[in-house]
Amino acid sequence: MDFDLSSDQQLLMTSFESLLEAYRALPVGSHGYTLYSKELQGELAASGFLDVAAAEGFGPLEAALLAEEAATSPYGAELAASALIGPLLDGAEGPIAVAWGLGEPVRYLPQARTVCIIQGDEVLVASPETGAIREVDTVGAYPMGALEKAPSNAATLDAKTSAAVRCRALIAIAAEAAGLMRAALEHAVQYVKDRQQFGQSLGAFQAIQHRLAENAQIVRAARSLAFRAAWRDDECSAASACLYAQNAMRKLIHDCHQFSGAMGLTLEFPLHLWTYRLKLLQGEAGGRAGQAALVASNLWGAS
């Protein structure tokens, strides 16, 4: 058990952070609901970071470390599913989108070169054909699209690979959610430090301090559970980490908006980029009931 990054992990994160550096600055003025960055997506593909889990000495934990970090940028680009699931699919091209059903809005589907369609225990893999995707106009801060039917080139994965893909897809959600929560909280904390009311900064009020401190616990727990799930790479840990995040995020989203006042509801203020991504993750993959069923069947043999 070691909670510090190894020197290789440190090197990885340092170079990843320098790539992200250019995508940290908050956009000026109104930036719309979705702040997708084609440039960031391109850099991720070109830099090889999407393949980190296949690299010598690395695995899903390193992919999850990157996913958590990437999610803190206000700019959206798909990394989590591509880095976690990509290595399981021989030669699949990223970005990868995960569809938890046909006809439903799917994150990053309009950008995806590969889509994993999860249908019960079975997973189909396909390259979305042009014209087959319906773009979905959304207030959620991810670009979304929907597939009405499976593409003609869809192939069904064998049972073992299907199970592995489903597990990694949950780890991807958990890691992404952890990073989004961290960024949203950091932003709200900065706001209450800066904002003056009653002759002092809002952060001086204990009522606000305590609620933000409770969220700091949530962020730390969600991160550590996501990373441990990635290290273990098993369905129960993955579903449990995902469930923890899906349970906890509602409080965090609420509190971060609450303490940002009306400013936090504007499209000039970046908070929604993290909270409205989180809102889309809250019910993904069957939501709490879906994760709980997996945990209960793994731990207690429940059906």
């Binding site: 980490a241 469930l243 709490r288 009931a289 994760q291 709980a292 209960a296 429940a302």
Partner: peptide, 9 residues
């Protein structure tokens, strides 16, 4: 199951 798995997590 939701309550139990949540408490477990």
């Amino acid at each position: 199951q939701i309550a139990a798995a949540s408490a477990h997590s």
